[in-house]
């Protein structure tokens, strides 16, 4: 059985690879190749690009992480953090590829603006150490955000009842071992859901107090009034799972408990049940009476 499944998966994967690989080449012109990053290479822009990436690209390309080369086999789209890929592509080339697409990769010229596409390029470049941002033109180098110097110890999330919000706090110490406020650390906050974890924030930087305020208005709790959350630093080094009570238990009304026309027989609407039984039994009663009359006729024989 296993053998069969392997053979089958091999055959189908090969088929998919063949169809994908046989697609035409990227047609990137020299002019396009020569283009340089059209936005500033700042953390802000990169973060904005990250947001766009999560929405439009992550579905196929997944997480971008630094690796010497792409490990993913077709039909999955490559990891854009692969160093060899980063080195082989100019900014203009990446931009052109996003714009025009190829085969399974759709063209984004319609759905993303030029500015947005450049922001995605900026995000893709963010973790590539060898990257040198263009120094001239509209892409003037901006001062890098100061990174937190101390040691991060933990991360936690607190629910504020009144504001209906979470505070994600990074707990850290400075070089001397004293508690410190970790500013500029990227953190995530997830709520556990039945089929996966739902991000309330992803990659948001802590403020000068080492905190991020996350609005949770209207967040639905489970039947006990709780939600299970995961707070973590964006680099996944620290994480904490907690169960937080965020409100009164959500009242769940069993939809099949009422008497509905669409319900089961045991849930027949009463008026219908009574009408049906009254009419049917009434009719049968009259019929029974008529049969009884036949009996009376029989009893009157030979008078």
């Amino acid at each position: 059985m296993n053998k069969l499944s392997k053979i089958l998966s091999f055959v189908s994967i090969s088929l998919l690879i063949m169809t994908n690989a046989s697609a035409q080449d990227w047609n990137v012109t020299a002019d396009q190749k020569a283009m340089t990053l059209g936005v500033a290479f700042t953390e802000d822009i990169q973060d904005a690009g990250n947001g766009i990436y999560n929405k439009s690209c992550k579905m196929c390309h997944g997480e971008v992480f630094v690796a010497p080369s792409n490990e993913r086999a077709l039909p999955l789209a490559p990891n854009l953090g692969a160093t060899d890929w980063q080195a082989a592509n100019t900014d203009g080339e990446i931009f052109a590829k996003i714009t025009n697409g190829k085969g399974g990769m759709p063209p984004f010229s319609g759905s993303l603006s030029e500015d947005e596409r450049w922001k995605v390029v900026a995000f893709i470049r963010a973790n590539y150490d060898a990257y040198v941002p263009p120094a001239s033109g509209n892409a003037a180098a901006a001062p890098k955000v100061e990174k937190f110097k101390g040691t991060i110890k933990d991360v936690e999330a607190i629910y504020n009842d009144a504001a209906q919000s979470f505070t994600v706090r990074v707990i850290a110490v400075d070089d001397n071992g004293h508690p410190a406020k970790a500013k500029g650390v990227k953190v995530d906050l997830f709520v556990k859901r039945y089929f996966g974890n739902m991000a309330l924030i992803e990659g948001q930087r802590t403020d000068e107090n080492g905190e991020v305020n996350v609005d949770a208005t209207g967040l639905k709790a489970n039947l006990d009034g709780n939600v299970e959350i995961i707070a973590r630093t964006n680099d996944k080094a620290f994480a904490k799972e907690e169960t937080v009570t965020i409100g009164y238990p959500e009242k769940w009304e069993n939809p099949i408990e009422g008497r509905h026309m669409w319900g089961t027989s045991a849930r027949t609407p009463l008026w219908l049940l009574i009408s049906y039984l009254t009419v049917t039994l009434g009719t049968l009663g009259v019929i029974g009476w008529a049969v009884f009359q036949l009996l009376r006729i029989y009893n009157l024989r030979e008078r």
């Binding site: 999560n54 992550k58 579905m59 196929c60 039909p75 709520v191 859901r193 039945y194 089929f195 996966g196 974890n197 739902m198 991000a199 209207g218 967040l219 639905k220 489970n222 959500e250 769940w252």
Partner: peptide
């Protein structure tokens, strides 16, 4: 689905998960 067409989830949790990316949203 290879194209991210489907979201599926629990309305009581106000969350749906994408079948392709496994991303969960409100």
């Amino acid at each position: 689905c290879p194209n991210g067409t489907y979201w599926f989830g629990d309305a009581n949790e106000d969350a749906v998960t994408n079948g392709t990316s496994k991303e969960t949203v409100r």
